Amino acid sequence: MKLWKKLTIVLVSVFGLSAATTETVRADTHTDFINRMSQPVLKVSRQNHLYGSVMMAQAALESNWGTSELSLNAHNYFGVKGNYDGHSVTMSTAEANPGGSMYNTLAQFKVYPSAQASLRDYAKVLRGGTTWNPFLYEGAWRENASSYMTATNIVAENYATDKNYASKLNKIILDYDLHDRLDRTSANSTDADTSTRLTPGVDYDSYDGTATVKPGTIKFYNGVPTASDKAKVVRTKQLANKQVKVTARGIVTKDQTIWYQVKSGSVTGWIQITDILGLKNH
């Protein structure tokens, strides 16, 4: 065999092996990211009635599969600006001017203590919208979106300027089977997407504690109520003077009214802080 033929075979083999190795490393990085984030995504998406597949795909896209400086050093997986409990980091970011041209500028980004804190904070954006429109993302809520593709369209329309944003999210979901892995497993009667109604304009947080329900008449709701909500009909005598498990807290941002989700046996609902005694966080 001539020398140039041998050399050609060697080069093709080397470059082919290199490309295959790169593809394998990339696939492993993506799989590792999904495995690492699955439990936090499942928990937060269930609590907030959101599609876990969309949350995972967006975290992957925004953080470059957990390799971005912001995700590595600040647990910020969605590029959220501002500060979190007073913590932030200043980094360079690309912005678009009114004419559509891109330029680099410095901006403050939130620094989170954990990946789950980043997911919870992002979920609050999707559930609570903005100060001028708390229903901005309501089309992406599981009770309103008939499929994850409906949700990605709503998120893309309001979250990103990239015209291909929805298709990028959908491709990640399809390539890694995220719908079966994160959506179907969270659609059962024990999850928040079927047992709890979330109200826009309420700052939610998980809570692990106990309390005692006051005696007498209390108002008991399916969710943190709006002005038009009527109290859920329950036999309050079952709960009076009884210790209950406290699973979540909701603060109405407009008037700072505090509500707690309590559970006793098969009875679950929201009551105002003034209707419980001896609240303890475990």
Score class of each variant (00 low, 15 high):
93 T>P: 10
49 H>I: 06
76 N>Y: 01
66 G>A: 10
93 T>I: 00
50 L>F: 09
54 V>H: 10
66 G>L: 00
59 A>W: 09
22 T>E: 14
61 L>W: 15
52 G>I: 08
86 G>F: 01
72 L>H: 03
24 T>Y: 09
78 F>Y: 15
94 A>T: 12
28 D>H: 14
31 T>F: 00
51 Y>W: 11
76 N>F: 06
61 L>M: 12
56 M>N: 08
34 I>L: 06
81 K>W: 08
78 F>N: 13
82 G>E: 11
68 S>G: 00
39 Q>D: 15
97 N>E: 05
38 S>W: 03
96 A>K: 15
36 R>G: 14
90 T>I: 15
35 N>G: 06
48 N>R: 05
34 I>R: 04
63 S>Y: 01
97 N>Q: 05
27 A>C: 02
99 G>L: 14
52 G>W: 02
80 V>N: 06
51 Y>G: 02
64 N>C: 07
35 N>H: 01
94 A>I: 11
56 M>L: 03
30 H>Y: 08
87 H>Q: 11
22 T>G: 13
84 Y>E: 07
23 E>Q: 07
59 A>C: 15
64 N>W: 12
22 T>F: 14
24 T>D: 13
68 S>P: 07
83 N>E: 08
34 I>V: 12
87 H>L: 08
35 N>M: 05
34 I>T: 04
84 Y>L: 03
80 V>P: 09
88 S>R: 08
99 G>W: 15
39 Q>K: 13
68 S>V: 06
54 V>S: 10
82 G>F: 01
48 N>I: 03
23 E>N: 10
83 N>H: 05
44 V>L: 01
90 T>P: 07
83 N>F: 05
55 M>E: 05
63 S>A: 02
101 S>A: 14
95 E>A: 04
46 R>V: 05
39 Q>P: 02
74 A>P: 09
33 F>D: 08
79 G>I: 01
95 E>P: 01
88 S>E: 12
45 S>Y: 03
49 H>Q: 13
68 S>T: 02
41 V>D: 11
102 M>T: 10
44 V>I: 13
58 Q>L: 14
32 D>S: 10
34 I>C: 04
82 G>N: 01
86 G>I: 05
63 S>C: 10
33 F>Y: 11
85 D>C: 06
89 V>G: 08
32 D>A: 11
22 T>A: 15
71 S>R: 00
82 G>P: 09
53 S>I: 08
76 N>A: 10
27 A>K: 14
90 T>Q: 15
93 T>Q: 02
23 E>W: 07
25 V>S: 09
43 K>E: 13
76 N>L: 00
31 T>G: 02
102 M>G: 04
62 E>S: 06
31 T>W: 05
79 G>D: 07
98 P>M: 03
54 V>P: 06
57 A>Y: 08
27 A>R: 13
56 M>F: 14
79 G>L: 00
29 T>A: 15
58 Q>A: 01
72 L>G: 10
60 A>I: 03
83 N>A: 06
96 A>D: 10
75 H>R: 07
63 S>R: 00
76 N>Q: 12
87 H>Y: 02
70 L>F: 07
59 A>H: 10
